[in-house]
Design a protein around this nucleic acid. Structure first.
Lengths: 222, 222
DNA sequence: CATCGCCTGACACCTTCGTATGATCACGCA
DNA sequence: TGCGTGATCATACGAAGGTGTCAGGCGATG
């Protein structure tokens, strides 16, 4: 598995990844800082894996665990900001904490606007980094939990036939069976059958349930 | 009306504030920059009002129009960051664009984490400021539109009696009338009456409608 | 005290929903 | 060609939803 293992689209999440022990991924070219950070994290019981360049990270095989990315801005080859953009384009949601020794305000603002969780200047206090990492891991956990839910919904929705999906669409709009039948040009009886299939396949115990699930799907899709 | 006019809780929005012409509020102690900014904005057809200190702003009477705040970080008395915190505590959602001549990275990160939309360093390019303002106004408009919707829902929900609200709660959970009746210790007939009142008062054409409105309310409240 | 709003309940009637049974037709796949 | 799946429809029955009418009790308010 490559770093794409952290790019979790709906349906990709294996069993309860959000509950696993977190992993902090470090990308920093200065070996001293890199190992210092690793030691710091291990001292508080956090697993950490470190790379010296973005290329190393991208080539590496990462487990699908909750965690975050601690990224130096200035790196050989692809910069930290470029990596942030690249990961975002790949669909990754892994929280990113930047650190830099020679940054400026526009750089930090750009990173924050692109979704970075924090932007620390070297030298930073150990506690500041640990605080940021704690927040980042918690956010990733929350996202994974939520994502697992919508992924499960998407899995259920994928079992619907085209017609059933169409009927569901109309049901959650609040239309009556006879109205749906007229809209689709079929009989009300057939609508009832499709509707029953939808409720069973989507594991919805009521129309209210179905509406909520349909809304959650709509939000996660677009 | 004070600056609290920009603190728009549900139910506070007058008719279609989101559609009004935007107003940019500037707080900057340097008179040259302040007037330069005002001229810049007026040159592109934007209304602007400027203050020399946060105290002046807080004492002023501001119309309830879409817009944004352009804020110097270093100000006499309360600083820009303090004002940001104060406004947030007051419930304001007015987008804030910071500008500074002597800022540092931690300051910019703090502002961005607190929800600032942008953080420009002086001297900035006119176009950068205009771009930021455009984005900010658009975001404020979107928020106002959304806010007006939930405010209307809250207004409808406020007309419900305690019992009706209770019944609605159970209905959107997907319970049957007989289950609601049992849960509340009343007869199914009475539940039907309350339910009918709920549908009428909430202007819901269907259970699906009601569920969506209840969800929107829940999100806006919690 | 009278009135009003709210909560409560019953009876009746119709609509809508949900499902079971049974059946036909089309399409793709082995 | 046979089989499975999906889509279609009919009949029928029971469960649930929705509305209207009538009515009693209860607390607040003028």
């Amino acid at each position: 598995m490559t770093v794409a293992g952290n790019i979790r689209g709906p349906g990709a999440s294996p069993p309860a990844a959000a509950a696993m022990a977190p992993l902090v991924v470090i990308v920093e070219d200065d070996e001293g800082i890199r190992e210092g950070l690793q030691d710091l994290l291990r001292s508080v019981g956090l697993d950490a894996i470190a790379f010296g360049s973005t290329a190393d990270l991208l080539a590496a095989s990462l487990p699908d665990r909750p965690g975050c990315l601690v990224l130096d801005v200035r790196l050989p080859g692809t910069s930290g900001l470029d990596l942030q953009a690249k990961l975002a384009a790949m669909g990754s949601r892994l929280p990113i904490i930047f650190m830099t020794g020679h940054g400026d305000i526009p750089m930090s603002v750009r990173a924050m606007k692109a979704g970075a969780l924090d932007f620390l200047t070297k030298p930073f206090r150990d506690q500041d980094m640990l605080d940021a990492i704690t927040v980042a891991i918690e956010r990733d956990r929350a996202w994974r939990t939520e994502s697992a839910g919508t992924a499960e919904l998407a899995r259920l929705a994928a079992t619907l036939t085209a017609r059933e999906a169409e009927v569901m669409q109309h049901v959650v709009q609040g239309l009556l069976n006879k109205q749906i039948a007229h809209a689709l040009g079929i009989s009300e009886i057939t609508v009832k059958i499709h509707r029953g299939n939808v409720m069973r396949k989507m594991q919805a115990g009521s129309v209210a349930d179905l509406v909520r699930k349909a809304e959650a799907l709509k939000v996660s899709e677009g």
